[in-house]
Simulated assay, not measured.
Amino acid sequence: MVDTALYFSFTALYIALLGWGLFLYRNRINQSFAYFLLVVTLGLIYDNGLLATGIFIGEGSTLETLNLWRFLGHAFFTPTLVLFALGIGRHAELQWAKKSVTLYSFLLITIALILYELTEITHQTLQPVVEYGVLRYTLVGGSSGPPIMVLIVTFILLLVSISLFRHTKWSVMMLGVILMMLGSAMPLPIESGAVTNTFELIFMTALFMTMSKFLPKEAG
């Protein structure tokens, strides 16, 4: 039940991050691609909340449907981090981020990743899994190997964070991305399925810190 408690904790912390983001929305410029980060955070609140409560809901059609929506949310929301990166680049006055070709390229990449992920979901089935006291449904029957969508999103965030560091010396976003990559790639000798989520929380916190750093205040 340790993992269940951790997922409850993650849910609460993501709610706090969302509150921070809404505060920024009220007090900073409120027309920005950077606010797609709030959409991703909503998905993570749902994701961690469902992982925390799955054992109490119990195996069956209800939990299966709720998990399907978890994967659909992941498909729709996670690719929008590409647009978040574009928004941060624009607010940081990075020249490449201001070009029209960059805007259209990032929009196309986001749409393509959403469609790809939705296609992957339709070719898989949901099966119940109990791991470290956590009951969830997982997708099986898809293509083997690392998740392509997540790899592409992470690579774009890494490139943007490096550009941000080179031009502004802001290293928080870059360190957050690198830590998440290391946490996902390195097997750790810990009996828990929530370890990756810990690195994900650190990563998201770094993105919120970056948004707070570069979102300008409304004029007047």
Rank of each mutant, 00 (worst) to 15 (best):
R26L: 13
F33P: 00
K98T: 12
L157K: 02
I148W: 09
G133Q: 10
L83I: 09
W170I: 00
M209Y: 13
T138L: 07
I111P: 02
L50W: 15
G89C: 03
H74M: 07
L201N: 03
F106S: 08
V172W: 08
L164Q: 15
A12T: 09
L83A: 12
D47M: 11
L63A: 01
V172H: 14
M186I: 10
S61W: 06
S100V: 15
S100C: 05
G49F: 13
M1E: 11
L51A: 13
Y104H: 14
T122W: 09
F214L: 11
S9R: 02
T78F: 07
T110K: 11
R28P: 13
R90N: 01
V39R: 04
A92I: 00
T138H: 12
W170C: 01
E191N: 04
M209W: 09
T62H: 03
L201G: 06
T210I: 04
Y14I: 02
E191I: 02
A34T: 11
L135W: 03
T78H: 05
A34C: 08
I190A: 01
V82Y: 01
T154R: 06
L179W: 04
T65Y: 13
L107T: 08
T138W: 06
T122F: 04
H167D: 14
S61K: 13
V129P: 06
V39H: 05
L207S: 05
H74P: 01
L72C: 11
Q95I: 08
I114W: 01
L22M: 12
V140C: 00
L37T: 04
T41S: 08
H167P: 00
Y25S: 06
S9H: 00
G87T: 02
E64K: 15
D3H: 08
L215A: 14
L37K: 12
V130E: 13
L182Q: 03
M209T: 10
